[in-house]
Amino acid sequence: MKKNNAITLRGRKMQMGRVWPYLFVLPYLLCYFLFNLFPMLYSFYISFFDWNGVSPKTLVGMQNYVDLLTKDSLFWKSLTNTLAMVAISIPVQVGLGLLAAALLFPMKHKRAMESIMFLPYIIAPIAIGAIFANMFDWQFGYINEVLSHLQVISEKVYWLQDERWAFAIVVIMQIWRHMGYCMIIYLAGMTSISSEIYEAAKIDGANSVQLFWHITVPQLRPMTVFLVLTSIINGLQLYEMPAQLYAGSSAASGGPQFSVLTVIWKFINDAFGPKMRLGYGAALCYILFVIIVAFSMVFKKLTAEED
């Protein structure tokens, strides 16, 4: 990019020119401080207290962090759940996105299909949760209805009440929501690969599968890095979809035996659930933050080394 190196006006104009950029960036910085940074710091402060928002705060030092990491097995459960969800869903959603992009790319009239694939990404997570809850309802869900019609199953399956199925459904939801997004990113990436590389390879006698593996995939590497990184960050914050899956249920939150309890769900339960432990919830968020930063750094490092 060219640097703008010619702000060369004299006199008063110049004075003004000096002020304008600060003036322009000020609202952003001010708002960020007011509505993001300050609340963040305040949450951090609260994380050292035992406080339910009503009675006075009690300073407990690192106790919240220590309890979370050493005593709270439910926290570890929620963390392993979330990590497992992310670990399973990302390769699938990225893979499906890549395949779909590869299929669509050579087509001429792809706008409609592109848009359809992208639809799940734009509707509200709570709508997705509600739809899946209805589809997988054991008694009057479409899935059981269709499957027993096709005689795939003889008895109706308790999808949402079974630990493993519940987990699988959350993973499916996550994949389903994001594959279109991955596809769009890959499609954009593909347009930027110059056709000369393909031509050259074709002359060397490469078939389309070889072209895909040896040219398209490596060329799309930056997109893959971007997608995996953002998917990790977003995946670790999963909450609304699984929670909505159980919105009408009388069961305790987190699904059967907490099999789909995610970190953020646990945070909401701890901070705004029966116990209302705001400090504890804040500490939980900061632990998640550290995990996200760690992941990003390790990932950046890994990808940087290979380059």
Partner: peptide, 13 residues
């Protein structure tokens, strides 16, 4: 009823 506690807590908060 399922949301009562959460809502009460957030109102208190």
């Amino acid at each position: 009823n399922n949301d009562y506690l959460t809502k009460l807590q957030s109102a208190l908060a």
